[in-house]
Design a protein around this nucleic acid. Structure first.
Ligand SMILES: [Mn+2]
Ligand SMILES: [Mn+2]
Ligand SMILES: [Mn+2]
Ligand SMILES: [Mn+2]
Lengths: 217, 217
DNA sequence: ATAAAAATTTAGACTTGCCTAAATTTTTTG
DNA sequence: CAAAAAATTTAGGCAAGTCTAAATTTTTAT
């Protein structure tokens, strides 16, 4: 079987690989896992030995098919537990990440599939992220970042790219929630902040930092 | 914080301490944790340093107040997760122990208390074991072992002292379930097996090994 | 095209939890 | 009560995962 640590590395490699095309670097992994580059190198050798990654010294790293299958399995568990915590136990979407980070390592396929059924086979987690299939494929969403939308368009908030409690609580404070539809009125040339309209009466400014972490359709 | 391993040792010390009065021995712990005596000694020194146990070399070990509080906290989590797995996910009582063994280490008091509420504050787990209070006390049940009941008495099955799938599945096979009431007809002098009557029509023999693992009231 | 800078790997060490073998203490027994 | 047996602890080591410091490779800049 695989250790918690190995599972976390696979998940992190997967996340970094989709964020920026190409091979994932040692330093990027060190930053994400809050360890040092030397420790990452040790683990990469181990994962390569287990055929979970393709690894060439100094050249970066890429998941093998088996590695990606495993990464998606962990992500599926994480997101299903997040749905459980929000839908059944009544936690806020800003509170569930750390608990799911532990629950995702509980080793039972039967448990995950029963949980999925109990939750009614949800397609998305509380942050709008798609839940991988039991077979190990990631459903694709056609979402784009709010920061890439053209002025004048009307869109609906479908997900977030950042899961920190700070960001999620900030969204709540300025009145943005999942499912909320809005019209992009203006894009400020100076700081790239956006003027968005939610209600007919009320408009608000959204910073570029926020807009690039909001997924819309 | 405490490691999974430390938490498991505390739980095991608690379990051994109630089974046989007095100090818990190194060998007993080694057997229960499926490790060697030398490893147990290492861990006992560590738990004593953390003031979780009273430990005198060669003399055995006993939980401190803080150690017992912690042990009961882990047991509470274990039993609440077992209720969840059986009541909400539909697992059998013979399938849930190993999963609960992992879930009990998820570090969030808020999670446990919300789970408790979601489950309707259950008093007993699927095996009839009482669930410790949030304050850290173990509710006492007046149950006795079926092997200690006198012939002629009518009793109700309230719990089991053994959680292995083998034992629980055997109970199902011979037709005994939690809550099932029965009359003890005879005690066989040769092998201490018991003749018990469930339905007016049907009686069955129960071995001493089974009877001493059944709790009744 | 080199030299400097940045990224990465290697070397050597630490912690946790476990092991085997040997030493020590306690208990049992003749 | 002394010798043998049993229980326990100590000594020394191993694997996983981490670290710092030093060496090596790759990238960037002059
Ligand atoms: Mn999350
Ligand atoms: Mn999520
Ligand atoms: Mn159990
Ligand atoms: Mn139980």
């Amino acid at each position: 079987m695989h250790s918690f640590t190995e599972e976390n590395y696979l998940k992190t490699i997967y996340a970094l690989a989709i964020r920026q095309e190409g091979e994932v670097t040692t330093n990027a992994l060190a930053e994400m896992t809050a360890t040092k580059a030397a420790s990452v190198t040790d683990m990469l050798r181990k994962l390569a030995d287990k055929q979970l990654i393709h690894y060439r010294k100094y050249q970066g790293v890429r998941l093998t098919e088996e590695g990606e299958r495993l990464a998606l399995k962990i992500i599926r568990r994480h997101r299903l537990w997040e749905v459980f915590l929000v839908e059944k136990l009544g936690f806020g979407w800003d509170e569930v990440h750390d608990m799911a980070e532990e629950l995702e390592h509980i080793r039972s396929d039967e448990l995950v599939e029963r949980l999925d059924q109990y939750l009614g086979h949800p397609q998305f987690d509380p942050h709008g992220d798609p839940i991988p299939t039991p077979a190990g494929t990631m459903p694709s969403t056609g979402y784009q970042k709010l920061s890439e939308v053209a002025a004048g368009e009307e869109v609906c908030i479908m997900g977030v790219m950042e899961h920190s409690p700070e960001f999620l609580q900030h969204l709540a404070r300025i009145g943005l929630t999942l499912g909320c539809s809005l019209t992009l009125r203006e894009i400020n040339a100076f700081d790239k902040s956006l003027l968005v309209q939610i209600q007919p009466e009320s408009a608000l400014f959204v910073s570029h930092d926020v807009a690039k972490n909001l997924l819309v359709a």
